[in-house]
Nucleic acid binder design. Structure first.
Lengths: 352, 352
DNA sequence: TTGTATGCGTTATCAT
DNA sequence: ATGATAACGCATACAA
């Protein structure tokens, strides 16, 4: 029986057919036996299993996916895995995916909308069961169109300002208030904020909470105290430099995130400013290095792995059609980790 | 026409069939038109494209994979993406994968052989086109069996001591010698080595080069100067503590990697030892934080992204059957980044 | 209990 | 230029 069809599909893989032929039974019997159905004689099953093992048979996930209409695959889009928090988000997603027998297809977008679009198209073509986006870009029309194409999706850490999606984030407002209250308790009144990128929804939330606190706690409302950062070390350095070179320097800085806080440390050491004696510093995210004794950064702990897991859980609900229309948001608490980078404001007596 | 087949495969997706029906042509014509064959009238093509767009048609990667016998997917196995070097390896792999229209399935093994086995089985079932392993476990019989099952694979950063595989690594011997020569030039004679895990092939290579150098450079051969580390901060702390509490402390330490070097910094600050005045420190990997001004760690730069790319390139050669049997090794150069954590040995005049 | 037939969506071959 | 068909590997409904 010569193959009549085209060159592709070289048919080198051992398939259920080979097992059937070799064990002298039919396809379905093999299928039944191997998937543990009870309608197969123990003897037949034994035989089949032996043959399968001998031939090194391994069911084709591709064929299965085609048949089931499910790939047991989840696509993950993030700007850059190399960014400190990303691996933890990823691990959280994986925790749940593993449990649900799903694998992860990972794509880096480098924060480029075009790259994200291309990746999304590929992922949808691959028929992933769902999509997790840790991305600033969830608002452009093309992306919305793909998002609405029917494949479940969930936003993690960054949300769309204009649309209502399934979303997992952290309580940034609470975080900001607790940071400020901590600083206020230490006597700080002139607090600088390094805000994150304008497209970042979390940056916006933090900024709003900051303004709210400035008003309600009676802090110095000088708009010069709010500078632009970008979540990177270098951006943190530049932003911090602007704050430090202000005619009247803030006594404390809240960085856009831990990485930009590193930039602040650089800027401070350059100017011979001692932290926390001359300047208190609060980070955001609580990445691993924040807890190193020689860094010892006071920061807001983002439960990254838990957030990833929560996102994946939301996604699985959709995939299992447990929830069809109503969107859901999960906001996880955020905790201030008080470490050594914050101290009494200069000129304030200890235990003020 | 009621569906007769089983419950799965719900048939909700718009397929090439729908496009064919809607545009009043046959399946093959749609396929030809959409895949840019020239045997289609321009008018027909227009029509088909319009319909496809209108219906939101997207070809099924799964069906294609079944048909082609290729999934355009590469499986990546690593102990833990959260480890500092992993994201860079991953990016390198992705660089090449993107170019080759492949996506990455990422699996964390947590360095557990059972987990790795399970993931490998899943990946092979999914019919990935190839496998990249950044894993200590490539030597157990079960794993070898899967590795030899026909799917191309390449080892990255860690190799098998017993088997010859496609492999990409760095020139660890050169790295170690350059580190030692740097220290020797600074007057160090009593150098401590924190070796990596025993299963780590790179750790072994470094250790051998260290011993070679101790002999050839006439360094203190005290076996107590070699302690066990584990690539983690805490392990580095403990190992460094042992070295520092030696009756006669080394004047320099070469850490297992940058993370354990952080542990050394912790141990040093705990003992009030100043680096590099009392103790010189060399790391390994050159992760981002090594270059932060307030850390400023002298370390060996591992070209991680390039290594990942080289591994993926090797893999693609196999996938494209450019190379069938002969295994290939790529050893990338490693470069000493001299920063502030190394200085003259105590008791040595400056500019010794 | 076991075998036969069908379809998942695609594309290459072959016929028209 | 276009259409009919088979095959990739699997799982199921149904018949024997």
């Amino acid at each position: 029986m010569p193959r009549k069809n085209g060159p592709p599909a070289t048919r080198q893989r051992v398939s259920i057919r080979d097992v059937a032929r070799e064990s002298g039974v039919s396809l379905s019997t093999v299928s039944n036996a191997l998937s543990g159905k009870d309608c197969v004689t123990e003897k037949t099953r034994q035989k089949i299993e032996e043959v399968a093992r001998r031939l090194g048979y391994r069911a084709s996930g591709v064929a299965r996916a085609l048949r089931y209409g499910r790939t047991f695959t989840i696509g993950v889009l993030m700007a850059d895995v190399s960014n400190a928090s990303m691996p933890d988000f990823l691990r959280g997603i994986e925790d749940v995916a593993d449990r649900e027998k799903c694998s992860l297809l990972l794509c880096n977008t480098d924060d480029l909308i075009e790259k994200q679009l291309a990746h999304m198209r590929v992922l949808l073509e691959r028929q992933v069961d769902g999509l997790v986006l840790v991305s600033q870009h969830c608002d452009s029309p093309e992306i919305r169109q793909l998002l609405d194409a029917g494949t479940p999706s969930v936003l993690l850490q960054r949300r769309s300002p204009r649309y209502k999606d399934d979303y997992v984030g952290a309580d940034n407002r609470e975080g900001m208030l607790s940071a400020i209250d901590h600083l206020v308790a230490l006597g700080h009144k002139r607090i600088g904020l390094m805000r994150g990128p304008v497209q970042s929804s979390t940056a916006t939330e933090k900024l709003e909470a900051f303004r709210e606190a400035v008003a309600s706690r009676g802090l110095d409302p000088d708009p010069g105290l709010i500078v632009q950062g970008n979540y990177l070390v270098e951006g943190g350095y530049q932003a911090a430099s602007r704050l430090m070179d202000l005619p009247k320097r803030p006594t404390a800085i809240i960085a856009a995130n831990d990485m930009s806080a590193m930039g602040v440390l650089n800027a401070a050491s350059e100017r011979g400013l001692s932290i926390p004696r001359d300047l208190s510093l609060v980070g955001w995210d609580d990445v691993e290095l924040a807890s190193f004794p020689f860094i010892d950064l006071t920061t807001l702990h983002l439960p990254k792995r838990e957030m990833g897991a929560a996102a994946a859980t939301l996604l699985m609900e959709r995939i299992h059609k447990k929830r069809r229309v109503k969107t859901k948001e999960v906001i996880l608490p955020i905790e201030l980790m008080v470490r050594g980078s914050t101290g009494p404001a200069p000129g304030i007596r200890r235990r003020a």
